[in-house]
């Protein structure tokens, strides 16, 4: 089962990924998807035992320590906010009262 990308598929993926693909861009994206998925689709025919997919890494944990002093990072971080009220990040209202 090799996936075939259709214009609708690409639009749906774009919506999931919070992107917009314009009608002009769409044919090129679909054609490139066909080629790329055709290539990576070779894995489907591969006979590999499942359950042995463990990477040779271990997560390391740090010991708990004292957190940094409150507010020391705030000025630098709020500087990057596109919209703010004081030190608070301001976003559009998403729940209406009425």
């Amino acid at each position: 089962m090799t996936a075939h990308a259709t214009p609708d598929d690409v639009k749906k993926l774009a919506a999931l990924a919070r992107l917009t693909v314009s009608e002009e861009e769409l044919p090129a994206f679909v054609a490139e998807f066909e080629a790329i998925l055709g290539y990576v689709g070779q894995l489907e025919t591969l006979d590999i035992a499942a359950g042995s997919d463990i990477l040779p890494y271990a997560n390391t944990f740090r010991t708990e320590g004292t957190p940094h002093e409150k507010g020391v990072w705030t000025p630098d971080i709020v500087k990057a906010f596109p919209n703010r009220e004081g030190d608070a990040l301001s976003v559009k209202q998403i729940i209406a009262n009425d």
Binding site: M1, L43, E44, I48, S52, D53, L55
Partner: peptide, 13 residues
């Protein structure tokens, strides 16, 4: 399953 999990298994192999 067809793509990502297969790729991770191929990586392990």
């Amino acid at each position: 399953d067809a793509y990502y999990r297969k790729a991770v298994a191929a990586r392990s192999a």
